[in-house]
């Protein structure tokens, strides 16, 4: 058995928001929430993408039609072939968790959807804070309402839906009233830095899913390094404890060349 990409056919394309598409395909793999696949478009590029749906029959990824690679993927219909390898990375752990708060910003809700599923199956009391720039960009809102009802909290930067403001403000409010066993988060790193700071202050455990530019996906090339950790293999999910000791989290990332730059300089590097 090799780890070369396997060509799979897309079985279904689901339009989520105007700019997010979910692609379903059959790929037999033992996958855990928070893990990712390296997704190859033959002749174009290969990128790490989190699994947004995990079931026995099929897997799915959700992409934002933003960069040139993603725009290409957003044009795909059922029947289109893509290459996938993985799943890679560690995934989220729910061990010992009875009560959870999940915080998603922008396209960060993608890897958190299988986690919601797992929490519900395991009977974990789950609250979900979903944030986006505006109402149109709230990814997986409908599904989350169906699954969580009143336990879904929506925030938008412009107030076009839910509470006007940031997810971190809602998190702070919730943590004023209750004490979950774990806060899970994925989204822009600046937001996650805020989530981490709040959790550290309140002494609540957290698990955050990170992203760095990757090449191999399996812990050899060292491209996706953050401090002495390889995001592809030691992560992409890290504990709040690990990240609170990090010199780079929330501050630095690396370009394809390996050159260190500030997150600001890198701009909006997070591509779904």
């Amino acid at each position: 058995m090799s780890e070369l990409p396997q060509i799979v056919k897309i079985t279904k394309v689901q339009r989520e928001t105007g700019e997010h598409h979910t692609l379903f395909f059959n790929f037999k793999a033992e996958a855990a929430p928070g893990q990712f696949l390296m997704v190859w478009i033959p002749g174009v590029d290969e990128k790490p993408i989190s699994l947004s749906k995990i079931s026995k029959e099929e897997l799915a990824i959700t992409v934002q039609c933003k960069g040139s690679w993603s725009k290409r993927v957003c044009g795909f219909e059922s029947g289109t072939k893509i290459g996938v390898r993985g799943p890679y990375g560690n995934g989220f752990s729910t061990e010992g968790v009875k009560k959870a708060i999940i915080v998603a910003g922008g396209c960060g809700s993608a890897p958190l959807m299988p986690l919601v599923e797992k929490c519900l199956v395991e009977g974990i009391e789950t609250k979900f804070i979903l944030g986006a720039q505006n109402a149109k960009k709230l990814l997986f809102k409908k599904e989350l309402i169906e699954k969580l009802g009143d336990n879904l909290y929506i925030t938008t930067d412009d107030g076009s839906e839910g509470t006007k403001g940031f997810t971190t403000q809602t998190l702070e409010e919730l943590l004023g009233k209750e004490k979950p066993d774990c806060v899970y988060s994925c989204g822009p790193e600046i937001m996650m830095k805020g989530v981490l700071d709040i959790c550290q202050k309140k002494k609540i455990k957290s698990q955050l899913s990170l992203e760095r530019y990757m090449r191999c996906g399996f812990g050899v090339c060292g491209q996706c390094v953050m401090d002495d950790l390889m995001v592809c293999k030691d992560g992409p999910v890290f504990s709040g404890k690990t990240l609170s000791e990090s010199a780079e989290f929330g501050k630095l990332t690396r370009l394809k060349s390996g050159k260190e730059v500030s997150l600001k300089e890198f701009g909006d590097w997070r591509q779904c």
């Binding site: 780890e3 990409p5 190859w40 290969e46 050899v220 060349s257």
Partner: peptide
């Protein structure tokens, strides 16, 4: 400073990388 090639850049095949 140099970016290197586009992905895929590192693969495992049956008997090595």
């Amino acid at each position: 400073e140099k970016e290197g090639h586009k992905n895929p850049t590192v693969l495992e095949w049956e008997h090595g990388l």
